[in-house]
Design a protein around this nucleic acid. Structure first.
Lengths: 340, 340
DNA sequence: CTGTTAGCGCTTTCAA
DNA sequence: TTGAAAGCGCTAACAG
């Protein structure tokens, strides 16, 4: 029977001190490896602590010392979205290196919920926040109400507020994908996108528009659909485009939901119909196992999470005010050929 | 300019009380909606609190009151795995209903890391833990060391410890999938599985074995491969099986990694080769868009997370000791036809 | 109904 | 090198 097996109310530093006939301060000093304590005493204390299985109360420690709580808040719309869960993984990777943990908050894309969640995380003592914002106005994240905590926005640049942010190269990635389609001879390229109110929506559309302009191809409203990222709507829009008298020979999709919709729309086309090329933002698991070839704009959300954490800890370390920084993650174009 | 715009050191209850000329207790009572305070006073206090943007310090409150911290720890191997991120979503859904938040810990499948993470979460004052364990011995989660906190194991039953757990019907789901293959006339069914040391590995294999036994089919070692869930290894194993003199006419895979491996192995088969049927545990996004038909054992990890949270809060509510409970989530068999 | 006292578990500050 | 006192922000317990 080891000494830990005793249960009951958690041990306090006083208990440990009492058993050793020393003051709590001695235990405290030994535990924190603070100098100004005899080596022999320290050993005796540490041995007793180990034997008792005593663990100091972090909350009390932080309350008194006023130091950082080594806690980062992560606010996302929906963790089931692989983009956000991978972001969380990257964030946590860096956090553990700083001895920090991640506290989670989901907003379900509702700005009001986001506000509450952020406030709650702040009340719980996070040292900083990574927020993938639900709305397009971010002034509620203003430093003042947040006890001047550092905030990093993810996947969207700050609007109405000056904070750091980490972004994906939405514009560059989409332009490159569109260029590839153009290089393969496509002139009628349909765009299935996100609403312009979303940063990603407007940036990815801009990539499409610029690539077409570079190729001397005029934008054609009939080939452009911009709605929320719902695969069913995207599928419908794709079907409509493909039913035009002069249908697009290629589709460019602004995110994986749109890509899925497009894939479904292309699913039932017969061999004798003109094949339609497809390129899209966001990689897709098993893309190489689909029944048709697919080109995707790929990037690493884990890296995005790491970048966000790094900005946060750097900001935390420096007391001097620094201008807001912006980190943009590169994308790569990946061709997934179809199985024969 | 609203009153919040003042920054500086966070306000305390004392500050609010001082401005109103009342005692901190009055503010405390008003804030918690405690009765035994005049309605007029309460309004006055709440108005001032709102005007000042004062937010009580939750950590101090919890330290003093000794009550629950409304915090649940979630320990998983890798949040990038959709199974775990969906589990997290379900857990959080229930938590918000109880005013609780989720603190995250990743183990990377390392039992030693798991131990540390769990200890850290406990030190940080979680009221309970949901753990998807990395190893197969769980005695380090024993109540004693955890300050008698409630623990719920996810996806694995407790070994060497008595706690609640939530499981997927690994056995039943696999048996059903295998039965379906048998019903379609298959007699030589290859199994691509997980090592028997994993609970899911042994249960899913058992489902396979029982279904075969029911059909009067003897197990054949040549058709059985049990390794870690790595799709490359699974692909290799599948290729070997298919190269046998009398190859299996169907493959049954024990998880999505194995399914992906099998799909890749089947990818390059030509039209004139015998088609090989495929069934597997875990649903796959876009399964209906693959180049071959696939039957999957589907279930809802979000539901698993909800169940875990529910067990946790129920256990927390009842002081009387209750025997460990086990919740098993049902699976359904889903047929994904291939596109033509 | 409101205020005072004490103390949650720990650490800062100061004294020995 | 060690200890005693005081208090982080808040609330239980007991006054008034």
């Amino acid at each position: 029977m080891s000494a830990h097996s005793e249960s009951g109310p958690a041990l306090t530093m006083r208990d440990v001190a009492a058993r050793l006939g020393v003051s709590p301060m001695t235990v405290s000093r030994a535990l924190r490896g603070q100098r100004g304590i005899g080596e022999a005493t320290r050993q005796r204390v540490l041995a007793e602590v180990a034997a008792l299985g005593y663990r100091p109360n972090k909350r009390a420690r932080e309350l008194r010392s006023g130091g950082p709580n080594e806690l980062i808040g992560l606010v996302v719309t929906n963790l089931a979205n692989p983009f956000y869960s991978q972001l969380a993984v990257g964030l946590e990777q860096i956090c553990v290196g700083y001895g920090a943990r991640v506290m989670l908050g989901s907003t379900g894309e509702d700005p009001a919920t986001e506000r509450e969640v952020v406030a709650d995380l702040v009340d719980r003592g996070v040292d900083g926040l990574v927020v993938a914002p639900a709305g397009h106005d971010h002034s509620h994240l203003g430093g003042t109400r947040l006890r001047d905590l550092p905030v990093v926005l993810a996947a969207s640049p700050p609007m109405g507020i000056d904070v750091d942010c980490v972004l994906v190269d939405d514009f560059g990635g989409t332009r490159e994908a569109c260029r590839r389609l153009v290089a393969r001879g496509h002139r009628r390229i349909g765009f299935l996108g996100l609403p312009p109110s979303l940063w990603t929506g407007s940036e990815r559309f801009r990539g499409y528009a610029v690539a077409l302009e570079e190729a001397g191809i005029a934008l054609d409203e009939r080939y452009i659909s911009r709605h929320r990222g719902d695969s069913a709507l995207a599928e419908e829009a794709a079907r409509e485009m493909l039913a035009l008298p002069d249908p697009p020979t290629a589709l460019l999709t602004a995110n994986n939901r749109n890509t899925v919709g497009a894939l479904r729309a292309l699913r039932d086309r017969t061999q004798d119909q003109e094949p339609v090329a497809l390129a899209g933002f966001d990689d897709i698991e098993l893309a190489d196992m689909l029944h048709l070839p697919l080109t995707v704009v790929s990037y690493d959300p884990v890296e995005l999470g790491r970048a966000a954490a790094t900005l946060l800890f750097e900001r935390q370390a420096s007391t001097a005010p620094q201008p807001p920084r912006r980190v943009t993650i590169a994308t790569t174009l990946v061709d997934h050929p179809a199985p024969r």
